[in-house]
Design a binder for these strands. Sequence first.
DNA 1: CCGTTTCAATACGTTTGTGTATCCAATACA
DNA 2: TGTATTGGATACACAAACGTATTGAAACGG
Lengths: 201, 201
Amino acid sequence: METPKRRRSATRARLLEGALEVFAERGFHGASVEDICERAGFTRGAFYSNFGSKDELVLALFEATTDRLLEQIAALLPELANQPGTLLDAVLGLLDDAAPDQRQWHLISTEFTLHALRSPEAADALIRQRTVFRQRLTDLVDEICRTSGLRLNVPVDQFVRVVIALHEGARTQSLLEPSAVPAGSLEHTFLPMVLDAVSRP
Amino acid sequence: METPKRRRSATRARLLEGALEVFAERGFHGASVEDICERAGFTRGAFYSNFGSKDELVLALFEATTDRLLEQIAALLPELANQPGTLLDAVLGLLDDAAPDQRQWHLISTEFTLHALRSPEAADALIRQRTVFRQRLTDLVDEICRTSGLRLNVPVDQFVRVVIALHEGARTQSLLEPSAVPAGSLEHTFLPMVLDAVSRP
DNA sequence: CCGTTTCAATACGTTTGTGTATCCAATACA
DNA sequence: TGTATTGGATACACAAACGTATTGAAACGG
């Protein structure tokens, strides 16, 4: 139907995509609006007719990216909950497969986190997103516990927080020293111990 | 004796200190040389007679900051190794007390890490620093194991990497949601389980 | 078909930041 | 005490980035 609106939202999407790439490469402050437009194949004119400012873009990008991530998770959930492996396989699978590009997502989300630690409103948005994300993981764990009869003796939310913390910390080390710390190695070595400890009465 | 050299190194130090603060507040790219000089009580003249460029400052700041951190650790080591508590108390104590300001150090080191993930030379420097840091922790663990007869059935370096990963990931959550995740809570809740698991034959 | 509207391009002015070149004061040294 | 040196301030030139104002073209509505 409405071709113009489609065009508009298409350029908006391309700008967001370009922003994602350029932010990952050069960081938030290091990337200029010009860089982003060039990457997307537009000029600044297109940018300022779609966004009021760079800050506004950042917020929009954050929303768009996390929305997509959460959709991705929703798509993965049924498969992970029912299919074969253990609880940890499912949880770690979710953490690994949620984002299409681990490195890029790590760079972007870390950048956002730094931003949030300096800006209360950004912190609000980030906390909301992370809360939803954790809730999805919590639901997954609950589901698997129910079907498998597993019982945890710590709050599931606490358990999920630890898995996330370890995963994020380990990812930093993996990206920095890929050969010394293969992706997922720390999690797969040590999380079973934790799970074992928290799942016995 | 040589007053001028002292003056020079004093202004250098004040510039570095200012840079540390301003970088923590606004991020690396977000902080201008002007900002840093103003914070330190100088003008750009002073800056460019002490540093060749902003990049050079960043490297120098990184070296200076990590040097101080490692000194701090060296000072803490004997006390922690011999005195009262458990192995985990010692290790977590070291991680907590090494930096005088956890928040600032987290912001700075995260910033450096992002920088390193985009710049191979910065990565080299960061990896070196982290290797030394881990080695100190490894030594501490070894020492405590020797005096207490404790025996780990995983490589100590692996164990230390996990502690660091969890600590760094948990710190992100603590800084973002201080009330939901009190500092150290995740570590103190879950690391004992890991230690217990890796210290039984 | 012709006016209108909309979106992106172009052109422009302003600000911000970097780095250099010059100047000034204070200390070192003969 | 006079001269040389050194460190930091001031002034300046230049580049990059932002945001605005204007223009052009393409789709839509009457």
